[in-house]
Design a protein around this nucleic acid. Structure first.
Length: 269
DNA sequence: TTCCAGGTCGTTT
DNA sequence: AAACGACATGGA
């Protein structure tokens, strides 16, 4: 069992704000599956207790939750008005996580036109069908798959119309190729991502924000659309492209953090 | 039963 | 450039 001192961090808010899908709360602990690892986590004030199915260095946790980000500075940058400050204070301590790009891409292709609960269900189906079983704490978990099967098998996981998109994308990508986008410019990386089947502007922004380190990405889903239109466009209907442009211009280089607070706040009204 | 869910894509206006 | 409709599935 390891222990970490944390500041400006809420494990619960970070996991439950809708950015990551493979976790559950069991008997007071959060169990998170990330790639090949099962993490067991509990926070008590500024102490983060953790254990894992395999031995992991502290740096793994620090990196996964971006605990070395300059949080006060980020909040200062995005606190442009009272709407934003209210969203922040309703769920303090949210961190943008740094997920594996391969896992993140597949997960978000599964997220199109469905609920967070639905995404969790589909991604867990994929892991149970194509991942490796990991026994931990007397329970069975499944690693995120390194390869997947046929379109038919994807359909059996409940992917519906996303099955064909995902299958076609899997013919194109491998994790190395996605990692290579980390050093590119925002627009250059994004133009590569939208070439993938089932990846449009919104999901590309999610992949960039949650796994490639582009904190300025501002994914626009139906909740962000509502939140931004209500707070900044007098509830007028505005195209998603305009919302995204506004978000990046208004909130600046940490717009992704602003997006996370707004999304979480609006979704939980 | 009907509606909605972290959208994308091709088509039409 | 913006609007429209099809697309599969599941939970409320």
């Amino acid at each position: 069992m390891g222990e970490l001192r944390v500041k400006d961090f809420s494990l619960k808010n970070t996991l439950e704000c809708g950015q990551v899908f493979r976790f559950d709360e069991i008997r007071g602990w959060h169990y998170l599956v990330a790639g090949d690892n099962v993490l067991k986590l509990r926070q008590s004030g500024n102490r983060l207790l953790y254990n894992s199915s395999r031995k992991l260095p502290k740096s793994y946790i620090l990196n996964l939750f971006r605990l070395n980000d300059q949080y006060p500075l980020i909040l200062k940058e995005i606190s442009k008005d009272s709407s934003m400050r209210k969203a922040i204070s309703s769920s303090p301590g949210i961190r943008i996580m740094k997920q594996d790009p391969w896992e993140c891409t597949i997960s978000y292709i599964c997220s199109a036109h469905t609920s967070v609960k639905g995404v969790k269900k589909r991604v867990n189906n994929l892991a149970e069908k194509f991942g490796d079983r990991i026994e931990f704490d007397g329970m069975d978990f499944y690693s995120f798959p390194k390869s997947l099967g046929t379109v038919e098998q994807l359909r059996e996981c409940g992917l519906g119309f996303r099955a064909k998109n995902l299958f076609r994308t899997l013919q194109i990508i491998n994790s190395k190729k996605l990692d290579g986008l980390k050093g590119r410019s925002y627009s250059s990386a994004k133009s590569e991502l939208v070439k993938l089947h089932g990846v449009g502007d919104k999901i590309a922004d999610c992949i960039m924000l949650y796994s490639l380190g582009f904190l300025q990405a501002f994914p626009v889903d139906r909740w962000i659309k509502r939140a931004v239109q209500e707070a900044y466009f007098e509830s007028r209907n505005v195209p998603n492209s305009v919302i995204a442009g506004f978000g990046q211009a208004y909130f600046g280089k940490y717009a992704g953090y602003a997006q996370q607070f707004l999304y979480n706040y609006r979704r939980n009204i």
